[in-house]
Simulated assay, not measured.
Amino acid sequence: MAEKKPRILQNNKDMAWSLIPLLLACLVIAAIAGQCSLRVGGPEAGQVPRIDLGASLQADADALDFPIRRPEVPAEWIPNSASRPAVTGADAVASTVGFVTPAGSYLGLTQSDAGEEELLRFRADGARTDGQGVESTAGTEWVVYRGEDTEPFWIADLGESRALITGSGSQDEFLTLASAVASAPVLDPR
């Protein structure tokens, strides 16, 4: 039977030789699972996920008690997200959809029956915002809010509901979405 090495003879070299087989085993398992890759030159942008905008908004129109509009955005805009969060601080729910523009910007549209202040507080996530004026498009006035280190927020009162637009888009992209929302038909619940 082999005797154990005396403690005085155990050193960093022995530890390294013990870890090498473990690291090789981890690399083999990662390669087999396909979870490891090496890309010289850095990462590449992947494909933007796409959702069915019409189906998402129709589901919200069927489930919520306020009018939901389906904006006709440019064909090259990719609808990529949808959710139905509860508006904190108000007894209300919101319908939220997001778009990725050809420039790579993101614009989010939130529709809710919550009041303007509650909706702004909810989407601004508690950040301090100040009114910066009004933008008019397609016969609808949008109150523009900006805050330090926040994206702009455009809010319009559409009668029984409010719409809020936010994101990293340009002024022209905000105007395009605002115009599409203002002129969009209200979806009939099924």
Rank of each mutant, 00 (worst) to 15 (best):
A178N: 01
L22N: 00
R162S: 13
R123V: 15
A61G: 07
D188G: 08
A156P: 12
V100I: 15
G98P: 05
G41W: 10
M1R: 08
P67D: 04
A45N: 06
I78C: 05
Q35K: 09
P67K: 07
V28C: 05
P74M: 01
G139D: 13
D14I: 05
D65E: 12
L107R: 04
R69Q: 14
V181D: 06
G42Y: 07
L27V: 13
G131H: 02
F99N: 07
P6R: 08
G108H: 03
S95M: 06
E151F: 09
S170G: 10
D14A: 11
A138F: 07
T88K: 12
P185K: 12
A103Q: 13
F66W: 07
T176E: 11
A59Y: 03
A75G: 02
D113M: 09
V48E: 04
V28R: 03
G46R: 11
D62V: 08
V134Y: 04
P74T: 05
V93A: 09
R50F: 02
G159D: 07
G139N: 09
E76P: 02
P6E: 13
R39P: 02
R162N: 14
F122G: 05
W77F: 11
T140D: 00
D149R: 12
A182H: 01
A92M: 02
L64M: 15
S179I: 05
I32S: 08
I29A: 15
V144C: 08
S37W: 06
T88Y: 01
L22T: 04
R7K: 12
S37Q: 11
I51E: 01
R146F: 00
Q35A: 10
A33I: 04
V93T: 13
T88E: 14
P189S: 08
N80P: 02
M1E: 13
R123T: 14
E117D: 14
R39F: 06
P6G: 12
A16Q: 04
